[in-house]
Each structure stands twice: as structure tokens, then as C-alpha cells.
């Protein structure tokens, strides 16, 4: 197999009248509907991929708004009751001097979700426009997005663990705020959005342009 980047030398499965199973990789004839090995549904191209990408992306973005407005943690101790949002918690950590943790929280809670929104949006737009630039880079970006998406849940996990551990009745109690749910939903929606993206469409541009 030659370099994937050679001009005109790249043949897709579809060009060869084949279709590959996306779950197990078994190649079938074009007209096969189900995979012989894993019984999975065979589809040469997902025509509704972009719609689903956009839909999940919007849902994730909508969910991300309350995740930042409402408090993530409800901390009640004997003397005070405090609510902290994501950004508020980061600022508090910086004030306390825990720069490292602040950076981790900030990256996991702000940078990665927003990066994902931007990346998925960029990929979807570029596919829609039939861009031929940086096909390899875009494919790598997609892989990174899909891989890193699950790590955004780190915040939700922290909240869940704290809420489970710190339940000392009146002395100190930590409860998840509404933002925790919103944030979790936002992460789930963006992951679904990333998964809905059919990366094969990145490479279809050449054919359709002909």
C-alpha cells in the first residue's frame, strides 16, 4: 500500500465496491447489509452523521452553560455554607496557592470541553465545505478529540467522590450542585457528538470534487 497522501493513488473501499464493518473491520461486498462476523450493520457512508454531530454538539453546548453558572459543589460546614462554581473553585484554588491543582481543574473543566466544541465544530464545518486541506491533521485531531473526551469527566468524578465521602451531617457536608449534572451531560453529549462524526467523510472530498 502506497502512501495515503499520494495524489490520486488512494483508493477507498467504496471505490473498490466494498464496505468495511466499522466494529470488526471485516470487508464485505457493497450490497451487504449486515456483517457476516459480528452481525453489525454495514453502511458505506453515514449520511446523517453531520446532523447528529451538530445536534449533540448543540446539546452539549447548551448543557455547558448551566454547568458554569450554577454551583458545582455545595459545601456546608458548622459555621458556613458555601457554593462554588467551576471558575469560582479555580480562582479559590489559585488564591490558596494550589496553582497545580488549579491548572488541572481548569484544563479538565474549561479548556478541554471548549476545545472539543471548537474541534468538533471545525471538523464538521470542514467536511460540509468539502475542504481538502490538512486531511491527515484533521483525522488526527478527530482521534485526539475522541480519546480525550472521556477525561473531561474527571471533574464529575471528583464531585461524586467528595459527595460520597463527606457526609458528616451537621459538621460538614458536600453535595453536588446542579452544575455537576449539567457538566456531566455536557461531556456525554460532546462524546456522542464526536462518535457521531464519520471520519471517512474527511477523505470523501476528492471523489465528490471530481
Amino acid at each position: 500500500m502506497g502512501s495515503a497522501g499520494t495524489e490520486g493513488g488512494l483508493i477507498t473501499a467504496r471505490d473498490a465496491g466494498l464496505v468495511a464493518c466499522q466494529r470488526c473491520g471485516q470487508v464485505h461486498a457493497q450490497d451487504a447489509l449486515y456483517c457476516k462476523r459480528c452481525d453489525g450493520r454495514l453502511q458505506s457512508r453515514d449520511t446523517e452523521s453531520l446532523q447528529r454531530v451538530w445536534a449533540w454538539l448543540f446539546a452539549g453546548m447548551i448543557a455547558y452553560i448551566p454547568a458554569n453558572i450554577y454551583p458545582m459543589l455545595l459545601t456546608s460546614t458548622l459555621v458556613e455554607r458555601s457554593e462554588s462554581t467551576i471558575i469560582g473553585g479555580v480562582v479559590e484554588l489559585v488564591e490558596y496557592g494550589s496553582i497545580g491543582i488549579a491548572i488541572i481543574v481548569f484544563v479538565a473543566s474549561v479548556v478541554i470541553p471548549i476545545g472539543k466544541f471548537l474541534a468538533i465544530g471545525y471538523l464538521a464545518i470542514s467536511v460540509q465545505r468539502g475542504s481538502q486541506d490538512n486531511q491527515h491533521q484533521r483525522h488526527k485531531a478527530y482521534e485526539v478529540v475522541e480519546f480525550i473526551g472521556r477525561w473531561s469527566m474527571i471533574d464529575v468524578f471528583v464531585v461524586a467522590i467528595l459527595s460520597a465521602l463527606v457526609q458528616l451531617n451537621t459538621i460538614a457536608t458536600i453535595n453536588p450542585g446542579i452544575a455537576a449534572v449539567s457538566f456531566a451531560l455536557s461531556v456525554i453529549f460532546t462524546m456522542l457528538s464526536a462518535q457521531s462524526f464519520d471520519s471517512r467523510m474527511i477523505w470523501d472530498v476528492n471523489r465528490t470534487a471530481e
Binding site: E48, R52, F58, I62, L185, F189
Partner: peptide, 8 residues
């Protein structure tokens, strides 16, 4: 799928 963002 569009129902999901609409619902959200």
C-alpha cells in the same frame, strides 16, 4: 437526534 438539543 435533533430532539436532544431541542429538549436541552
Amino acid at each position: 437526534v435533533w430532539l436532544v438539543p431541542i429538549a436541552a
